[in-house]
Write a protein that binds this DNA or RNA. Structure first.
Lengths: 248, 248
DNA sequence: CGTTTTTTTGCTTGTTTGTGCAAGTTTGTC
DNA sequence: GACAAACTTGCACAAACAAGCAAAAAAACG
């Protein structure tokens, strides 16, 4: 087996499981530990993964699991600022959950008149601070991980909504694979949210770009706006600029 | 499991529950106490949590724990403590909103296995911190005043629920007039909550006793438990002791 | 084809890291 | 103030690691 093939194999494992063990790779690839270690080091040098004692972890692993001290808060605030420009008086807006969306909601202009549907209790509470915003919280099972409501009941209710704009955070975005996710329930949820909104804005910090996870939500064409903390002309966005996608 | 993963796991637990017990982590992660202690110490060195005898606490929890603005907080904590005794494993419980209920939810025993329906987003978020509690948030219009969902849609959904116990705070209780309220919508809501629960516990600080408001929710006979911060033999409760009402 | 150069791999050595055990100390509780 | 649980410290052992070296494989060249 060629080195390049090994690297690809390792990266597939990483994207699938968020981690690999050196010992596992030794068995699976039938090479010495040293070779694996060298492979991992090279992949680290390319910035593709994160090495720890005993193996390696996916780079996106952190962002999805560690909201300890609101990871990358500055970036998220910058994104939120940009996103507020999409919101106009009279709109019907549907939002997901997550720290980025929450940041956005905190930055809405006072006096904005709009209707918000949301699956996030925290977002609902924050929205309630605005006098002229009508808030509808979509009920259902409550996810301990994502802190949003989910499940069949939520999806049924989403089907009854017609929103002008859907705002969602994301755990991964890839120019070819589009929007992807790790959990089946969240995947279904996002599909339903997309389906009931005229346009969709994806709020995505740059380190989640160019990553594809297990489950596909939608192709990139289904997204209307991509909002990152980067400058519109940043090189990292080159692959997205070709698509008919409004980049903010 | 890799060390880094353990650390992430611990931080997730901390963010979820605001605290972790060393003994729990030993079981959950299947490593020795020593390892857990070392992990905790390392996380302390990174400034991510506080270590205490028996486990560790979230850092943000303490700094943000000045809910001292909550009116009559001590009384509410006392009430909450009593109310937890009503809750047993396996129960299906319906809760309203309000600071007293929120306080109660914070005091539930770790490891409680139960199903909670709630109309309060904040209660839902708090409940989500317990591993063995299933949380269903009832969705609908979100009230800026009461911080709960309300309206026809909520009432329709309540009609589908069969709860063992309903926990609600109250703005007034009167020996003759029973449970009363000021707002039409909340009135309707409470009626619906009562209707779908076998028993109802009313959490009521003493200064709201003997007050009757505009709209009648139910006679005092419809209530199973009255929980105040007072001693069961307090004179203020005399008028209620005559009724067939369990006073705690 | 053979020979030289480069790359890749596995082995050896010595080092670091992670974990559990044992002994003694502190802390919380009744 | 006694007892158990939780904690600290030091130590030992195994697993994982880094660096240098030599054999093997692949590539380059005439």
């Amino acid at each position: 087996m060629l080195k390049k093939e090994r690297h690809d194999f390792i990266m597939r494992q990483i994207n699938l499981h968020n981690r690999v063990l050196t010992s596992d790779l030794v068995q699976l690839l039938n090479v010495s530990e040293d070779t694996i270690r060298r492979d991992l080091q090279e992949l680290v040098d390319e910035g593709l993964l994160y090495k720890v004692h005993g193996g390696a972890l996916s780079k996106s692993y952190h962002s999805s699991f560690d909201d300890s001290t609101v990871y990358a808060r500055d970036s998220k605030i910058a994104i939120a600022k940009k996103a507020t420009n999409l919101i106009k008086d009279g709109m019907v807006i549907l939002t997901g959950g997550g720290t980025t969306i929450l940041e956005l909601v905190k930055q809405l202009p006072q006096g904005l008149t709009a209707t918000f549907f949301t699956i996030s209790p925290l977002v609902a509470v924050e929205l309630a601070k605005y006098n002229n915003i009508e808030v509808i919280l979509i009920g259902g099972l409550f996810s301990k991980n994502s802190q949003v409501t989910y499940g069949g009941h939520v999806i049924t209710q989403l089907a009854e909504i017609k929103a002008d704009l859907c705002l969602m955070g994301t755990s991964a975005l890839h120019p070819e694979e589009g929007l992807t996710d790790t959990y089946w329930e969240i995947n279904q949820l996002k599909k339903a949210m997309l389906a009931c909104s005229k346009r969709t804005a994806v709020l995505c910090i740059s380190e989640k770009l160019d990553i594809a996870l297990r489950l596909k939500v939608c192709p990139i064409e289904s997204i209307s706006y991509l909002i990152t903390e980067l400058d519109v002309n940043d090189d990292l966005l080159a692959n997205y600029r070709t698509k008919e996608l409004n980049i903010l």
